[in-house]
Design a binder for these strands. Sequence first.
DNA 1: GTCTATATACGGATAGAC
DNA 2: GTCTATCCGTATATAGAC
Lengths: 194, 194
Amino acid sequence: MGQKAEALRQRIVAAASQLFYQQGYENTSFTDIADAVGISRGNFYYHFKGKNEILDAVIESRASGIKQLLQEWDVKYPDPRQRVLSYIDMLSDNQKNIRSHGCPIGSLCTELAKLNHNIVHNANIMFTVSCDWLTVQFKQLGHGKSAKQLSMHLLARTQGIAIITNAFKDSTFLRQEVHRLKQWFNEVTAKSVN
Amino acid sequence: MGQKAEALRQRIVAAASQLFYQQGYENTSFTDIADAVGISRGNFYYHFKGKNEILDAVIESRASGIKQLLQEWDVKYPDPRQRVLSYIDMLSDNQKNIRSHGCPIGSLCTELAKLNHNIVHNANIMFTVSCDWLTVQFKQLGHGKSAKQLSMHLLARTQGIAIITNAFKDSTFLRQEVHRLKQWFNEVTAKSVN
DNA sequence: GTCTATATACGGATAGAC
DNA sequence: GTCTATCCGTATATAGAC
């Protein structure tokens, strides 16, 4: 496969990912993606076997995208506390998108759980990337045994915030909850220091 | 409209509500509902103008169902603390369904937010019923100004738990979080007593 | 009121020209 | 590699028999 084809493949995945986020997976047709990319419907099948394979690529793309971002933070921020606070700040940074379309990970997992796709069971790798990274941070903050539980808790909190913000179209609530979440994080990490 | 037709209408709404929960709204066809109820596809259009109207009825049905349950609790439990704890216990009571299909309210709101339906803006009335009721309970527990914020917070927490439980198919996490949530509630209400 | 038959549109997928 | 043309299944919705 040539470089040009590979580049087009990337563009298809990027467009599909955005459309899946805005409109949902099932509700996005090949026509939608084709129009966004500027190619014909038939051309898809040179790059992908079918819609399932595009979904697979989107999940893979999102997971590796998050992974890369988190690795950059590992370099950028020496303090694990700062890293986790940056993670929480993602909610504020993306509040407009969350208000309109929810969390890209959570909403996709929710949709796929309703379908009988085999891929459903692999969709949560998008969560796992964050979960594993957060667990490492909590371990570095002195929480050995409860690190994973705290990580999952934080993950769930962010998801709940995204759902309610999206349902009520209310960014004010998001900001309140971000504050509350940071408060919780400060209390939890303060405990471990002693 | 006769009683028999009204009864059939109820059965259609009940079947549709369950299927929307298990398979999603878009992914559920008239054929699916027809098979579940035991009627023909064409018969729907005597009772409903279209799929939108069925969705409307399902939302209405769920909202009034929750409202009724909460009103029963108002009678059954004299203590507002007990009422809120019962609300939290809904997570444990429905853990199997949540594991398989998430929260019926949250997942529907998430799906509808992706579509361009006009109904989307009314879907959150299902949340509002719980939110208003919880706000009343927190007010009775001495939280005047922050009652609504606490109510929304609790709502978000339950949603986050449902998402993660569903994504990871992990009921153990749900039980941990229910414990954590009750702990939070105890701390919050303990404060207000003083 | 409930049914069968059918209209119409659109989805994913394939074949083959270029 | 990318296109056009087309197949086929299924969706909502309607018409009209009973």
